Deep mutational scan, measured.
Amino acid sequence: SLEEAIRRAEEALRKGQTFEYAGIRVTTQEALEKFRKWAEKQK
């Protein structure tokens, strides 16, 4: 689910890792916010 993907992205960010979902790379807090906004639109 998208909620699960967001949780995994947050977890990866805390560990300093890269999270990738549907071709979207989350490597920074800013990218995480963009990913969250994108995920909201997918619902």
Rank of each mutant, 00 (worst) to 15 (best):
I24Q: 08
I24R: 05
Q17I: 12
I24P: 00
K43W: 14
A31M: 12
A9W: 04
A9T: 01
Q17C: 11
R7L: 12
A22S: 08
L2R: 03
E11T: 06
Q29V: 13
Y21T: 02
K37R: 14
F35T: 00
L2F: 10
T27D: 15
K37N: 10
A9D: 00
L32P: 00
I24V: 06
I6C: 08
E20I: 12
R14F: 08
R25L: 15
F35N: 00
S1A: 13
R14P: 01
E40A: 09
E11D: 11
K15V: 11
A31T: 13
I24F: 15
R7Y: 10
E11S: 07
Q17N: 09
K43V: 14
T27F: 06
A12P: 00
A9E: 00
F35A: 01
E4C: 15
S1G: 13
T18W: 13
R36P: 00
F19A: 02
L32V: 03
E33Q: 10
E3A: 11
K15T: 13
G23V: 01
V26N: 01
K34S: 11
E30F: 06
E20D: 06
I24S: 03
G16Q: 05
K37Q: 14
E3L: 11
K34A: 15
R14V: 08
A22K: 12
E40T: 06
Q29E: 12
E3I: 11
E10P: 01
A12S: 08
R25T: 13
E33F: 06
G23R: 03
R7Q: 12
E30H: 08
R14Q: 12
R7N: 08
F19N: 01
V26W: 05
K34R: 14
V26F: 10
Q17H: 11
A39T: 05
E10I: 09
E4R: 09
E4I: 09
S1I: 13
F35Y: 03
Q17L: 15
E40H: 07
A5W: 12
T18N: 10
A31R: 04
R14Y: 08
G23T: 04
L32S: 00
E33V: 09
K41F: 11
R7D: 06
T27Q: 10
E30P: 04
F19W: 05
K34H: 12
L13Q: 02
G23N: 06
V26R: 00
E10M: 08
K37C: 07
R8W: 09
Q29K: 11
A12V: 04
A12G: 03
E20R: 04
G16E: 04
E30Y: 07
I6D: 01
L32M: 06
E3P: 06
A9I: 05
A31F: 05
E4V: 09
Q42P: 04
F35C: 02
E20V: 11
K43L: 15
W38G: 00
L13V: 13
E11M: 07
Q42Y: 10
A22T: 03
A31P: 00
W38T: 01
A22P: 02
A5C: 14
R8H: 10
T27G: 12
W38I: 02
S1M: 12
I6R: 02
L32K: 00
W38R: 02
A31V: 06
K43R: 09
A39R: 03
A39N: 02
A22L: 12
A5N: 04
G23L: 02
E40K: 07
I6Y: 07
R14G: 09
R36M: 11
E33G: 05
K15W: 09
Q29Y: 15
R25E: 10
T27A: 14
A31L: 08
E11Q: 08
R36Q: 06
A22Q: 13
T27H: 10
T18K: 07
G16H: 05
E33T: 07
A9Q: 01
E40M: 09
E11I: 09
E33I: 10
A22V: 05
E30R: 09
L13C: 03
R14L: 12
E4Y: 07
E33L: 09
K15Y: 09
K15N: 15
T18M: 12
K43D: 09
A22M: 15
Y21N: 01
V26M: 06
R7G: 07
I6K: 01
E3G: 08
E40F: 07
R8I: 07
V26E: 01
Q29N: 08
L32D: 00
Y21F: 11
R7A: 12
E33R: 08
K41P: 03
A9R: 00
E3S: 11
K34L: 14
A5I: 15
E30D: 11
A5V: 14
A9K: 00
E33N: 09
T18G: 09
K37H: 10
F35I: 03
A5K: 05
E30L: 10
L32H: 01
E10V: 10
F19H: 02
E10K: 05
W38A: 02
R8D: 11
L32R: 00
T28G: 05
T27Y: 07
K41D: 14
A12R: 04
Q17E: 15
T27M: 09
E40I: 07
F35D: 00
L32E: 00
I6W: 05
E11F: 03
E10F: 06
L2K: 02
T28Y: 02
S1N: 13
G23E: 04
E10S: 06
R8G: 08
A22W: 07
Q29P: 13
V26K: 00
V26A: 02
E40S: 08
Y21H: 05
R36W: 04
I24M: 11
Q29G: 06
G23W: 05
E3V: 10
V26L: 09
Y21D: 02
K15G: 08
K41T: 14
E20N: 05
T28L: 05
L2Q: 02
K37M: 13
E3F: 08
K41Y: 12
L2Y: 10
T18Y: 15
E4K: 07
K43A: 13
I6P: 01
I24G: 03
V26G: 01
I6G: 02
A39Q: 03
A22D: 09
A5Y: 09
R14A: 15
E11P: 00
A12Y: 07
A31K: 05
A9G: 04
G23D: 05
W38M: 03
E30V: 08
I24Y: 11
A22H: 13
T27K: 07
L2C: 08
K15R: 13
A39S: 04
I24W: 15
K34I: 13
R36Y: 06
E20Y: 09
E33M: 09
K34Q: 14
A5G: 03
E4Q: 10
T18L: 12
I24L: 08
Q42D: 05
E10Q: 07
A31N: 09
G23C: 11
I6F: 07
T27W: 07
E30Q: 10
G23Q: 04
I6N: 01
T27N: 14
R8E: 11
G16I: 02
K34P: 01
W38N: 01
A9Y: 02
R14H: 08
K37D: 11
R7I: 12
R8P: 00
L2V: 07
A31G: 14
Y21R: 01
F19R: 00
K43E: 11
L32N: 00
K41H: 12
G16Y: 03
E33K: 07
V26H: 02
Q17R: 08
E40R: 06
L32I: 04
K15F: 10
L2S: 02
G23S: 05
E11R: 06
K15I: 10
E10D: 05
K41A: 15
R7P: 03
R14D: 08
A22E: 11
G16F: 05
L13M: 06
W38D: 02
A39F: 07
V26S: 01
L13S: 01
W38Y: 04
K37S: 11
L32Y: 06
R25Q: 13
K37T: 09
R7M: 12
E3Q: 11
T18V: 15
K15Q: 13
F35P: 00
W38E: 02
R7W: 10
A39G: 04
K37P: 00
V26T: 01
Y21M: 05
E20F: 08
R8C: 13
I6Q: 03
E20T: 09
W38L: 04
K37L: 13
Q29T: 10
Q29M: 14
E4F: 06
L2W: 15
E3K: 09
K34T: 10
F19G: 01
A12W: 05
A12L: 06
R36V: 12
L2H: 05
S1H: 13
F35S: 00
K41R: 13
K15D: 11
I24K: 04
T18F: 15
R8F: 09
E33W: 05
E3W: 11
E40G: 05
E11C: 10
A31Q: 15
S1W: 15
L13N: 01
A12M: 08
S1R: 14
A39K: 03
L2A: 04
T28D: 14
K43P: 09
Q29L: 15
Q42F: 11
Q29H: 12
Q29F: 14
R14C: 10
Q42V: 13
K43N: 13
A12I: 04
